[in-house]
């Protein structure tokens, strides 16, 4: 059933992701062309602009996909007899896959840009701020591709929370009460996740792990250092999740178990199809 839902929605998801990538590439080409024959300093600035566009989209697209997952018109699944549970699972799966795919593709393009733009001009690259090169695999190693599933996990967790709130709110009769219940759940969610992140962070610092999965740090409790990387810079991305951090994993699995149990006990609708 999850496969069927994925197949039904793949074209629209593909279109959205492709459009995002196309815009990034357009910006890259456009801005690059503007820098032909310019000084090194200016070229470095322009490179930062291009990376900034890429970085912006790495926030925008996952959020867009999340909003699309929440607000898309899907009553035809209900007509066809798909259970609400399966529908949610199908949407979640699609959200994960397309977010990860988009970000992976972005990182590949960012890396290509990194190579092409700075070809034969290492001085320019030297003047470009390392923080902007968040998505370049040249700067941070292939391991940074793990950022794709990590951000996908983040938006999926958000969707799961939306699902919990939706189920909680359905039973409540009055609108002001509905809003109150939703806010309470949201507050609990943020509090819980903040705690988990802090715990993950603390254990991570103790073991020299980082927020964003970097090749030269990260990993559960014992620091295992894979071979040669360039930067030791720790980057921050609000959608990144330390998915290789055991404390984080445990915390989130607990959350998912809670969500699953809650939804099943409260029930999505009074009379679901068997």
């Amino acid at each position: 059933m999850i496969r069927k839902i994925f197949l039904t929605e793949w074209k629209e998801n593909f279109f959205v992701c492709a459009a995002g990538l196309a815009l990034c590439l357009l910006a890259a080409v456009g801005i690059s062309l503007a820098g032909i024959g310019a000084t090194d300093a200016l070229r470095a600035d322009l490179a930062e602009y291009v990376f900034a566009v890429f970085n912006a989209f790495s926030y925008v697209m996952p959020v867009l996909l999340l909003l699309k997952s929440i607000f898309s018109f899907r009553s035809y699944y209900r007509m066809a007899g798909v259970t609400e549970e399966k529908r949610t699972q199908g949407v979640l799966f699609g959200l994960f896959v397309w977010t990860a795919l988009f970000l992976a593709a972005q990182m590949i393009f960012a890396t290509l840009f990194d190579f092409i733009y700075f070809a034969g001009a290492p001085a320019v690259r030297g003047q470009t701020s390392p923080q902007s090169m968040l998505l370049s695999l040249r700067a941070h190693g292939v391991h940074r591709l793990l950022f794709a599933p990590s951000a996908a996990v983040t938006v999926c967790l958000m969707y799961i929370m939306y699902d919990v709130i939706r189920v909680a709110v359905v039973r409540v009769p009055f609108l002001p009460l509905k809003i109150l219940v939703a806010l309470i759940f949201l507050a609990l969610y943020f509090f819980y996740h903040y705690t988990v992140y802090c715990a993950a962070g603390i254990t991570g610092e103790l073991a020299d792990a980082s927020w964003l999965v970097l090749p030269d740090s990260v990993l559960p409790v014992l620091p295992v250092v894979p071979g040669g990387t360039i930067d030791a810079v720790k980057d921050i991305h609000f959608l990144a999740a330390p998915i290789l951090n055991l404390v984080f994993l445990l915390g989130e699995i607990l959350f998912c178990v809670f969500a699953y149990g809650f939804v099943h006990v409260v029930g999505r609708c009074k009379n679901e199809i068997e």
Partner: peptide, 14 residues
């Protein structure tokens, strides 16, 4: 199958 918030039984669904 559109509305699943009701009480009662329906022998053929989905």
């Amino acid at each position: 199958n559109m509305d699943r918030n009701f009480t009662g039984e329906v022998s053929l669904r989905g």
